[in-house]
Design a protein around this nucleic acid. Structure first.
Lengths: 183, 183
DNA sequence: ACCTGAACACCGTTCAAGT
DNA sequence: ACCTGAACACCGTTCAAGT
């Protein structure tokens, strides 16, 4: 048929978004593209590499932070990251896993480090704080998205109104950061 | 052979610890117990239920927090949780996933909420802060454990000395919490 | 450059039936 | 109460070979 890497990647993202991570299979991807499973390996070395590219695609849709104060820029970056992940089925799972493996884009991490250094943090604080913020955003988004699906599937009974208080937890970390930056 | 639920669970934990999450399979578990795969379903409804029980087992080894001040109790609880997860291969992955699904023990969460309420937090702050702390601990442990394995497997080249600065990030959150509690 | 066909070594889960 | 045997509907990955 003559597909390119980008065709395969775009289809993988669509498959993830419409049917979830469980449906994003090398075999199913091949079938939907009208091609043998093994043909996918011509474009991606393995599934992990494909998932890393999918994660990058999810993160590419983030808007750039525009605010002037560092707390607002941190809020913008974290909110943008969260929204990008929640906008795609199982997006938080894919992005967090790829990040933990050390693959995929460092965009959000680099952005946070830059903002914090500009705000007066030394290199160590900037590095630790950016990772702390990312762990918070990943953890919160992953739990929210997973719980929502578990409830929708009837797999578990649980309320969710207690969950999406994303901003409050973020302010907690920002407050801790503020007390370090003003010192 | 006549196994009980606890035999199966103990073997599952051992399989996880010695060979990782990829090896913790219903089929392999059956084989190692000298039993058909389908026999496992007599003890656990499905793999998710088994994983929830495994997560509870990992968390059961945590020591109780004994310190008197709330920041020290928070540090103890978080460090105990982290250690329990890191002590078992893929422990952070299993515990964080089970937690996100709303299954398994709420031990660490309940402990943190209790400590924070005792320290003067209202119910909402205690709930948000405990989840923020958990997201941080899960995220940090998952990344540390995953990165360590990815490096050991040669799947990725990355330094790790920049990672295990667990305490610094935790102090950040505790500082934010302190500024709320003293207000 | 892109793909086929076939194979290898696996999965989770169900279900009738056995003791 | 605990298990067998067999099946169903799948996986990721490799590799020689084709165009």
């Amino acid at each position: 048929m003559g597909h390119h890497r980008d065709d395969v990647l775009a289809h993988a993202v669509e498959l993830l978004d419409t049917h979830g991570l469980g449906a994003l299979t090398m075999r199913r991807l091949g079938t939907e593209l009208g091609v043998q499973p093994s043909a996918i390996y011509h474009h991606f070395a393995n599934k992990q590499t494909l998932l890393a590219a999918v994660a990058d695609e999810i993160l590419a849709s983030r808007p750039a932070a525009t605010a002037s104060s560092w707390p607002d820029r941190v809020r913008e970056t974290c909110a943008g990251l969260r929204t990008a992940m929640l906008d795609c089925t199982d997006g938080a799972d894919v992005v967090a896993t790829v990040w933990a493996f050390g693959l995929g884009a460092h965009g959000p991490a680099d952005e946070l480090v830059a903002v914090l250094v500009e705000a007066g943090a030394d290199d160590e604080l900037a590095a630790v704080a950016s990772r702390t913020l990312l762990h918070y955003v990943f953890g919160h988004a992953f739990e929210e998205q997973t719980a929502r699906q578990a409830i929708a599937a009837g797999a578990v009974d649980r309320t969710l109104d207690s969950l999406p208080d994303f901003d409050l937890g973020l302010e907690l970390v920002i407050d801790g950061l503020r007390s370090r930056l003003s010192a």
